[in-house]
Design a protein around this nucleic acid. Sequence first.
DNA 1: CAAGATTGTCAACGTGCTTTCCTATTTTGT
DNA 2: ACAAAATAGGAAAGCACGTTGACAATCTTG
Lengths: 132, 132
Amino acid sequence: MNRTMADRIRARGYDDFQPSFTGVLAHIDTEGTRVGTLAQRMGVSRQAASQRLQEIEALGYLERVPDPNDGRAVIARHTPAGRQILLTAIEVMLGIESEYETILGSDGLKRLKRLLTRLADKIDPSGALESK
Amino acid sequence: MNRTMADRIRARGYDDFQPSFTGVLAHIDTEGTRVGTLAQRMGVSRQAASQRLQEIEALGYLERVPDPNDGRAVIARHTPAGRQILLTAIEVMLGIESEYETILGSDGLKRLKRLLTRLADKIDPSGALESK
DNA sequence: CAAGATTGTCAACGTGCTTTCCTATTTTGT
DNA sequence: ACAAAATAGGAAAGCACGTTGACAATCTTG
């Protein structure tokens, strides 16, 4: 699904969009999000999150600003272009979901989501990383 | 799930087992399977399949023999050690499934599988590769 | 206020894939 | 029968995305 999303977002003119971007964009809130928090939400290391962030920043969809409350921290937030691409991504996602709904039926899709959510919540609650 | 499997298979003494191996091992039938067929089943390029095959062969779980019916082709098949590890993998998989069953209930797991299978069958029937 | 913890990053490397190019064999059309 | 085309497999290079280890800067504590 993620790959399909990336393909279609690219097809809409965002040539350099990578599958890994969806996770980043989706986990940054409107007021911006710190790198560590983002990494946690994505279930990857801070370093990995930082790398994606840099790539996306280079394309102009995000910017990194120092956290006023913590000199160590950096806050990533959407640029206008980023909000634009986010809207596109949401459209694309809804489109894909509606295709799934055609295949599974409205109830089927709902049940699938519920089952997967339940599983994801119980299993490996925050990824296998912080076990360290 | 795949990562969990690999972790547990490693924990059972197969130190060098990689997550990508599950797909390979699972798609090779008892009489052996040609590289191209395997690639198709795995949904990757022949080259990728060939690479995994070489890694697994180096560890002694598979062997590659020339196809007697086609001088171009190569057949990959399990070695005794390969059948051994395959049994382990199946045990591990059943273990994981039973954990899922605890979370979702027996009916829940069955429904989940059915929904996912239905989706997988309709979507991208043989991977986005052979569209080329 | 020194000792320790936390935040982010750089650098190096691992895994799993793709693409491009190539050889060896088989199949086909005439 | 045989050249032309198709097919099977693989080597090499590169890419996407992650990891780990080491580090400087800043914050928090005893």
